[in-house]
Design a protein around this nucleic acid. Structure first.
Lengths: 199, 199
DNA sequence: TAAAGAAGTGAATAATGATTCACTTCTTTA
DNA sequence: TAAAGAAGTGAATCATTATTCACTTCTTTA
């Protein structure tokens, strides 16, 4: 036995994989999943295309991992906002702002995660993502309805509509590409009225 | 001079082009623009692939024409609903229902027109489409704000958010795929509250 | 240092789908 | 009917990407 993987090698492999994922996410940030090609990932990470296949079984797996990493971050940020202090109205308002801020700072990424259709493999992950996302909003809407802060309504539909309203007004092709405090404030008011919160 | 195009030939050419567009739209209805291949269009219309190129300079032109035809119809339907009788609230409610009904009856098409990313060539047409669409809603929102029926708000942002809310709750991956009167009613209420209409 | 084991490489291959073009068939008129 | 003009055809070609694999280089240990 003349070879055995050492910690040094393990670290390098982790770093390599991380570098590949970083290069891949950069591409998605800049041009959505449509810009994610193995060639470009390899180039961005400074390795050969074959190397990518040492770390990922194929494009699907790479794309899915990029998707999961990014969505985990996004969901965590919104979840944190929704689990903060205050009533349902306050928390929904804060969550709306968090969503808007993050989307503004990386619109292509936000669009890629929420709307861009991709491989069926990634679509499975996206379905889970949207479910999680919508569920977060659904919870706060249902909570507000229960406490009487919001109007009676179908929380599931309202949650989907809220996500759609946020996505369209901020990521849509007609959206102001500049981070605009007024836009965010207007969106927050729209969402507040939509759930029937008094404000 | 031994040949000159006659009316008969002209008619046939018009019919042929119309048949190609019909075949193309059928494909988009069934699978979005992703399903629009020249091969499939030719097959659907019962002609050779080369024939498609006698009528369209390339795939871009074909896709753009399909898009424009379909969107013209959609916009007309919503515009009619918005220009009907009654106040801003009534007209917005009717328009919401029209949008929802049409989207339910052809969800893939609606999704393809509103959300599916396609060739840059088609994207130009889509931008125009969304502008038109949003402008329609913007007008009624501004109208309602002016008459005091709706709360004060930024009509442009609200219009985009309304379109997003409708699209997401009806076309989104989590949407109920069945035409559901309750869903439509819930969406209508959401939209009414969102603009601050009393109902 | 030598040899085993594994990572790195990128030209070659595969798959998909748009586009071309030399050819055939149809339509018209002298 | 003959010949011009145009439409129809689809196999061949081009373009883009994912994927493979025979080979090279690196790392480890006896």
């Amino acid at each position: 036995m003349a070879y055995r993987e050492t910690d040094l090698v393990r670290q390098r492999k982790v770093a390599q994989k991380s570098g590949l994922l970083h290069a891949a996410e950069t591409l998605v940030r800049e041009g959505g999943f449509g810009a994610l090609t193995i060639q470009a990932v390899a180039e961005g990470a400074g390795v050969g295309v074959g190397t990518v296949y040492r770390y990922f079984s194929g494009k699907d797996e790479l794309a899915t991992e990029v998707f999961k990493r990014a969505t985990t971050r996004e969901v965590a940020a919104v979840r944190e906002a929704l689990s903060g202090p205050g009533g349902a109205a306050t928390r929904l308002a804060v969550a709306t702002e968090v969503f808007a801020q993050r989307a503004f700072s990386a619109p292509k990424l936000a669009w890629a995660l929420i709307a861009e259709p991709v491989d069926p493999a990634v679509d499975v992950a996206r379905l889970q993502y949207r479910k999680t996302y919508t569920a977060l909003f659904e919870t706060v809407v249902a909570n507000g309805v229960a406490t009487g802060e919001f109007a009676p309504q179908n929380p599931g539909l309202s949650a989907a509509a809220l996500v759609g309203a946020m996505a369209e007004s901020i990521l849509g092709p007609l959206a102001n590409p500049v981070c605009n405090a007024e836009t965010i404030a207007a969106l927050r008011l729209f969402c507040m009225r939509a759930v029937g919160a008094q404000c």
